[in-house]
Structure formats: structure tokens, C-alpha cells
Amino acid sequence: MTYFLYTVVCLLVVVFQTTLPMHFAMFGGMYDLFLLFVIYLGFYRTIREGFPFVIFFGLAMDALSGGPFGLYLTSYFWLYLSILGMIGFMRVGNNMILPLVVVGSILFQNIIFLGTMTLFVPEAKIPVFLYRNVLTQVLWSVITGPILILLFHRAHVVLEKWLKTFQPEYR
């Protein structure tokens, strides 16, 4: 059931972030919502459950994107590993650090994207709206990121509790 939930969320996120900015300009500067899901998987779920989906998300986004293949996968993979590393010395229950983690993730992904594009793509230059784009993403993420992560965490916990009531030992 969890995998089904993740697949549905994955699909919704892809459709949301590839369709809405076309029609509503206010979503044009939105950050990559998958980052929130990677953070969620790193913080709240087991490696066995999270790792395959991080790889799956990365491949799905790379397949749909026009960037060099592996770009999204790289950002999700290393972000996930970094979060697993962070858990070693941070208390997961402390929600105050979530905005910092979200902003850090946005900056991390932008560095990977821009680094790849400026270093490896022939004749590529640093985009002209660099600061504006990154700032917009950071502002969006500070406002919405932690709320979305906590909402999804809460929804997942409630769903798991509800599903357990159908198991024989709970009847």
C-alpha cells in the first residue's frame, strides 16, 4: 500500500510541476517538489523503503526532462545520502530544522544543475536570471516546504493506522 501511495504521489507531483507552471505564471518559479519527498523519505522512512523510490523518482524525472540524463537522479541520490548522514547527529523529531534542510536541498540541487550545465555543456554560460530564480525557489520552499512535508507525514501515519485496523489481529 505504501508503494502504491508513493507511486500516486510521484505521478501527482510530476503532473503538478510540469503542467501548472504552463497555465499559472505564479508557479513558474516553483522549486522541485520531489526534493520534499526525498527529504521525507530520508527523515521518516527506512532505507529499504526510501532508496528504491529515490532512484525511481530520479529516473522518471530524467526521462521527462530535457537535461542531461542522470541530472535529477544525481541530485536526489546525493541529497538522500546526505540526509541519511545528517540523521546520525540530528534529532528527526525536531521540526524546527526542516526549513533549513529544505532550503539547503534547493540550493544543493541548483548547484548540481548549474555546475553540470556550466562545466560540461559546451559553450554554456551561467543563466542570466540566476539569483532571481534561486531566490524565488528558496522563498517558495521556505513557505511551503516544511508544511507539505509535515502534512504528508501526518497523512501517511493516519493512513497506516487506518490500514492496520483491517489486519486480523486488530479486529
Partner: peptide, 15 residues
């Protein structure tokens, strides 16, 4: 008809 676009502001592709 254009049905989707790349979510990253650095990549300019549409579906």
C-alpha cells in the same frame, strides 16, 4: 498542443 514543461527553470523543454 503543449501538455507539459520541464520543471527546472534551467532546462527549456516541453512535451
Amino acid at each position: 498542443a503543449v501538455v507539459g514543461k520541464d520543471p527546472s527553470p534551467w532546462l527549456k523543454t516541453v512535451v
